[in-house]
Design a protein around this nucleic acid. Structure first.
Lengths: 208, 208
DNA sequence: TACATTATATACTGATCGGTACATAACTAG
DNA sequence: CTAGTTATGTACCGATCAGTATATAATGTA
């Protein structure tokens, strides 16, 4: 019973996600956001609250995309297949033409000023959520007897997350899709799995 | 024959390096820099030119530190030893108490605004310099016959750089030294080397 | 002691940041 | 057509950004 909104909220969120992804949280200014979203400042604040809330709402869309990829990847039959699937998908997603490069949860979490600390914490939380999913999947691998003796599924999950994070950095600094796919394939081939590891145990005890 | 400088240029540069490392290029404001360095704005500009030149001079000190680590690590007898040495050193350096976490060349290269693009390019150049050193070392491994058939030394160098970059992200988001050392050890153990790889060739052709 | 030179400290510039006050436009219910 | 409500557009707020003008303090030389 009042003036209707002159823009689509979801479309505007997608534009905001693109800009945040491309420039990080602080790098995307309100001026740039409103221009990309095709709306005015007051409309943005009336609809989304403030910059931080807008970011979180855009982030929700990003997480749902990534969760869908994890659903596929974690369903692969063995740990090595999971690694290959997830890293290949990551390589493709991070170099999608017309899309921002790298992973929003990595690029956006690099601290610039302190003011964006809550956003950084949120991104860390997101990444830990995904790492937890990998941990659970690798625990299944261990139960299935496919982990070499002494290999810790949590350690492998962290290694995989580390490689994925590194790929995001590589992508944001010019790595091509072909290069990232090669990284993914080499990581998958070297992945420890019981059918190709001979001796070597207790890598997990190396930390002091 | 004039008023002498009231501060030590090298000490001031070290303070600046610490701040850039901690907050990134844009995140370290001139106000914060001058306070940390214990000098005034005009002194900073008279001595170091401007923010970008100050950053590059601080970066030089960082690169020399890192190059020294590479000198040690690349001297290890085999590729796997090189990987273990470099990743262990990286884990220790990234979690040094009282120091900023992560790698400056990674944390600083994440784009916030476009204005810092030249700085980003400089950091990318630095990282490529180090990746080149790894490439050369792995080429020696291939000549020595320690690389599994079909394994490309350049690909392995990129994989190693990817893991190191990922460790920087992990460090900046709360990973402990013990966790990073475990990542390093697991990566080293799984590293492809001719004495433990049976079949599997041409991982390099996986990219499309 | 007087001068030339360089470093320092204060205070400013214009631009941009996130966020908002306020007047007006567009709509629906009566 | 009017009243009430919500969206929009403009123009602003104080804070902060990198960088600088200017006046003064501290030195070596003469």
């Amino acid at each position: 019973m009042a003036r209707p909104r002159g823009f689509c909220e979801e479309e505007a969120l997608d534009k905001a996600l693109d800009l945040f992804w491309r420039h990080g949280y602080e790098g995307a200014s309100i001026a740039a956001l409103t221009e990309a979203m095709g709306i005015n400042r007051p409309s943005l604040y009336a609809t989304f609250g403030n910059k931080e809330e807008l970011f979180k709402k855009a982030l929700d869309r990003y997480v749902s995309i990534k969760d869908a990829i994890f659903d596929e990847g974690l369903a692969e039959p063995t740990g090595r297949d999971v690694v290959r699937h997830l890293l290949r998908k990551a390589a493709e997603m991070m170099t999608e033409p017309g899309h921002p490069v790298g992973c929003l949860a990595v690029q956006g979490a690099i601290s610039c000023s302190d003011e964006s600390e809550p956003v950084r914490q949120e991104l860390i939380r997101i990444r830990q959520h995904h790492e937890q999913r990998i941990r659970d999947r690798f625990a299944e691998e261990q139960d299935a007897g496919r982990l070499p003796p002494g290999t810790n599924p949590d350690d492998l999950a962290m290694l995989l997350a580390t490689i994925a994070n590194g790929m995001s950095i590589q992508a944001s600094t010019g790595a091509t899709r072909a290069q990232l796919l090669t990284v993914a394939e080499n990581a998958a081939r070297a992945w420890p799995q019981v059918d190709d590891v001979a001796s070597d145990a207790a890598a997990s005890n190396a930390a002091e």
